[in-house]
Write a protein that binds this DNA or RNA. Structure first.
Lengths: 188, 188
DNA sequence: GTCTATAAGAAGATAGAC
DNA sequence: GTCTATCTTCTTATAGAC
């Protein structure tokens, strides 16, 4: 594979990643992606044999991004509560996109879960990355409730994203994030 | 319109309602619906000029169901907290479907919100029914925080549904519903 | 009201030239 | 590695017989 090939492959993944977030996987056609990149469908199929293979590459790309973000948070915030509040802050930082398109992980998983189980299982691993990281962090506060708490924080994040998305309302997101922070403050 | 026509129309709406929930709107074809009802596509198009018109009928059907359910809860539970807990209980009653297909309202709204704004606006009215009802009920506890609380309970319900759906895990739904009830118990 | 037949277009994917 | 051209299938929707 030449250098030029790698560049094309990455451009495809990045364009498709955005399209799949904003339009949904099943509503994004191979032509949409090719048009966005400025190549033809035939060329795209040289890089990715099928649409599913493209999605797998996108999920791999997302998982890598998430992992490096979590590692950076680990370095940047020594205290457990600081780490947890950084997670909440992520939602506020992504306000515009969340309100317009929902949570990128949640909406993809929800779509695939209906009847694309193989792809959903793959996509779910994005959630696993956050869940395991949160569980480790919560364990520093209380070793017994860490799993339940990690799931609860994820659930509140999903609820906040979903409601602010459905109502296209930044205030809902801000209010729910404030409640999440208050919940974190009240722990132990 | 004859009596037989009305029966067909209702059978179409009920079958399409289920299919759109389990497969998603955009992934449910007119043929899928016609096959499920046992009629032809041509016949279905006699009853509904377009797929969008069919969805509007489904949303109307759902809104009617929700309204009558809320009215029944009003009659059945005189106390505000009883009403609120009945809302939480609804999620537990629908455990099997929520875990397999997510929240019927949330998943439809999330799908339509991506790039079908007219249909999403229509679908959002299902949420409005719950939100207004919850707001009135919360107002009996505290007149000032009723709107924020109604949104928060809806957000927790969406988060609980989403997480238990993504992880196909009834325990997550039960745990989150328990936390919702504890939150309700702690109010005022 | 229900059917068959068909139009007209978009989808994912492939073959082969360059 | 990128292109054009094509295939097949599926989609929504329509026309017209019964």
């Amino acid at each position: 594979m030449t250098v030029k090939g790698k560049i094309s492959r990455e451009r495809i993944i990045e364009a498709a990643n955005r399209l799949i977030y904003t339009k949904g996987f099943n509503q994004t056609s191979v032509s949409d992606v090719a048009d966005a990149v400025g190549i033809t469908k035939g060329n795209l199929h040289y890089h990715f044999k099928s649409k599913e293979e493209l999605l797998e590459a996108i999920i791999c790309f997302r998982k890598t991004s998430i992992s490096s973000m979590l590692e950076q948070w680990n370095e940047e915030f020594p205290e457990a509560k600081e780490k947890l509040k950084r997670f909440v802050q992520m939602l506020l930082n992504e306000e515009k996109d969340i309100i317009r398109y929902g949570c990128p992980m949640g909406s993809l998983n929800a779509e695939l879960g209906k009847f694309q189980p193989t792809l959903q299982a793959n996509s779910k691993e994005m959630f696993d990355l956050f869940q395991h990281w949160l569980e480790v962090v919560f364990k520093q506060l209380d070793s017994k409730k860490s799993k339940a708490r990690s799931r609860h924080l994820l659930a509140m994040g999903q609820g906040a994203s979903m409601m602010s998305y459905i109502y296209s309302d930044a205030k809902i997101l801000k209010d729910e994030c404030r409640l999440m922070n208050e919940w974190l403050d009240a722990l132990n």
